[in-house]
């Protein structure tokens, strides 16, 4: 009985996602304003990034506050390969993803043994070390960063002077892939283990070794996807420097949508990004010009209020009714 409803639920999720992607793909037909398109691109990018983060942070419960490391690596590998070796960004993207995945495996081995806050601070600190090294690495542009000159529209080079549409569709593709990977993982052997460990800490003992390996795998997948997002960002903004792609602030930004939307859920990151990113952009654009920090107050208050009133994320708004019924 349970399995039947579960399978139904999963099929419903998949159909819902397909509908969303189809609807989103049509939006640019009606919305021509580049500024709004820009916000949509960022929203999709953060949805994808946060979804990638959610695999490790939500499902495995390994709260990483250092994902800027993978994001930055993806951005840097792509930009360096393109500007110094004329390697097309599509290959750079894959290279960045693979390098990040390897690094995630190497780091996962010692860090996954650490508990809660020790793990979180270790991830911050590792990302900070990478940030400082890039800031002092002259060959990689150091503080000057890497400026990617855009001269003409080209799909091969993934560069477009004015049009936001190619970036929009790539970001949509990225978010959809990250969602699909999560959807698939949820129902895999790994997904069952993770749930088992969460629901029943005693199960962790007996599953210890295999769960550790599955976490390593989750870390690598999460890093790979995050790096793809970083590569996309480098091409989208066409300029990167350590502050913009590797700072601690960025690690928080990657995890924030998942937390606000609903951590460890399939739809949380999407919902979180859809709320958070437009709010961030609009508060800055329309009240940030005052120079008095009103935008920060609004943005920060929103985070506090949501995390206090909806601890299970905004997604709780949708499933609340269902839960209430279940309780009764």
């Amino acid at each position: 009985m349970h399995d039947v409803t579960h399978a139904k639920q999963r099929r419903r999720d998949l159909i819902l996602a397909a509908v969303f992607v189809a609807l989103a793909a049509c939006v640019p037909l009606f919305v021509k304003d580049v500024y709004v398109q820009n916000i949509m691109v960022l929203t999709l990018m953060y949805a994808g990034l946060s979804q990638s983060w959610n695999i490790l942070g939500g499902y495995c419960g390994q709260i990483s506050l250092g994902h800027a490391l993978y994001f930055g690596l993806g951005a840097y590998v792509t930009a360096i390969l393109l500007t110094k070796f004329d390697v097309l960004p599509w290959f750079g993207m894959i290279a960045g993803g693979l390098i990040s995945a390897l690094i995630a495996l190497a780091l996962g081995y010692p860090t996954f043994r650490l508990g809660g806050h020790y793990f979180a601070i270790a991830t911050i600190v590792i990302a900070e070390i990478a940030y400082l090294l890039f800031l002092n690495w002259d060959w990689a542009g150091a503080a000057l960063g890497i400026d990617i000159m855009v001269r003409e529209d080209s799909w091969a080079k993934f560069q477009f002077t004015r049009s936001k549409l190619p970036y929009f569709y790539f970001a949509l593709f990225f978010a959809a892939v990250a969602w699909l990977v999560t959807w698939w993982l949820e129902n895999s052997k790994w997904g069952y283990w993770w749930r088992a460990v969460k629901d029943n800490p005693d199960a962790a003992e007996s599953l210890g070794v295999v769960v550790f390996k599955s976490k390593m795998g989750a870390g690598a997948i999460s890093a790979f996807l995050t790096a793809i997002g970083g590569a996309f960002y480098a091409m989208f903004v066409s300029y990167i420097d350590p502050d913009a792609v590797m700072s601690f602030q960025f690690s928080l930004l990657i995890s924030l949508p998942a937390v606000l939307g609903g951590i460890g859920t399939l739809w949380g990151p999407v919902l979180g990004a859809a709320v958070l990113i437009p709010v961030t952009e609009l508060t800055r654009s329309f009240i940030g010009g005052s120079g008095r920090g009103v935008d920060l107050i609004v943005y920060g208050s929103l985070i506090v209020i949501v995390s206090l009133t909806r601890p299970d994320g905004l997604l709780g708004l949708f499933s609340r009714k269902r839960k209430k019924e279940a309780v009764r």
Partner: peptide
Amino acid sequence: LVFADHQADPQKGRAEAERLITQ
């Protein structure tokens, strides 16, 4: 004059420039 805030972030500067130009 229309003032825009870039918060020292190149990405935001870029987005604001585009907003100022198009909107």
